[in-house]
Amino acid sequence: MNNKEYKNIEDTHITISELMLPSHANFSGKIHGGYILKLMDQIAFACASKHSGTYCVTASVDTVNFINPIEVGKLVTMKASINYVGKTSMVIGIRVEAQNIQTGETKHCNSSYFTMVAKNDNGENARVPGIIINSQNEMRRFLEAIHRIKMKKNRQEKFDIDNFKPENHLDELRNYNVKINL
């Protein structure tokens, strides 16, 4: 591959901000998690499409942790960055912060990882450019993504319906609030 087939991570960063309105609130008066996920999916799409130069689709969403609730009237800022690239897929790291626009106080509300797949005009998977790692933080994020991908594959294999044997897990379940009636 030549240098045109690699991009600097910072060249595909995306940041969006939106004021949270009462129409975005759930029944408890906090911003609905589904609305935040929708915004996260949009910024993941924008970041992946900017990197790949193609249309992209969401393949999976990993590790969605709602750390702090978001209040009506807060300015929500989402920052997206390419953390990992494969042949046709990209992992987009997203950080969500809510700011009180009167005081300037900012709190971290959510972090998540979206796996996006590039598509060509025929809807087939399309090759994506590689990334150029320019910092220890970018390297750490890339390696973290590799480990998350490996853990996910291991979990899928371990609990695959064709390979799963309940008797191998009975001892593991004894310390949990569960009654087994097989």
Rank of each mutant, 00 (worst) to 15 (best):
E157P: 00
Y113I: 13
I132P: 00
N2V: 06
M1L: 13
K107L: 13
K119H: 04
V91F: 12
T58L: 13
C47R: 09
I67W: 05
E124S: 14
F159M: 06
C56W: 05
V91L: 12
E157A: 07
M116S: 06
T77S: 14
Q136R: 11
Q156R: 13
R174P: 08
G29Y: 04
P22C: 09
G86A: 02
G73E: 07
M1N: 09
L39G: 04
Q42L: 15
G33Q: 00
K30T: 11
S49W: 02
G34S: 00
A25M: 07
E167F: 08
E172P: 09
I36Q: 03
R155E: 15
I161M: 11
K30Q: 13
C47H: 06
T12A: 08
V76S: 01
G86P: 01
H51N: 04
E71S: 09
Y55S: 13
H169L: 07
Y35I: 10
N2H: 05
S60T: 06
Q102C: 03
H51M: 07
N100P: 02
V85H: 11
H169K: 07
Q99G: 00
T15K: 11
R95M: 13
G123H: 12
F159L: 03
G73K: 10
N122R: 04
V61T: 09
Y55G: 11
N134T: 11
G29L: 10
G93T: 05
Q156A: 14
R141E: 07
K150H: 05
R95K: 15
N8R: 12
F114W: 09
M40F: 01
I82L: 12
R140W: 05
T106N: 07
N68I: 01
E5K: 14
H108Y: 10
R140E: 09
V61G: 08
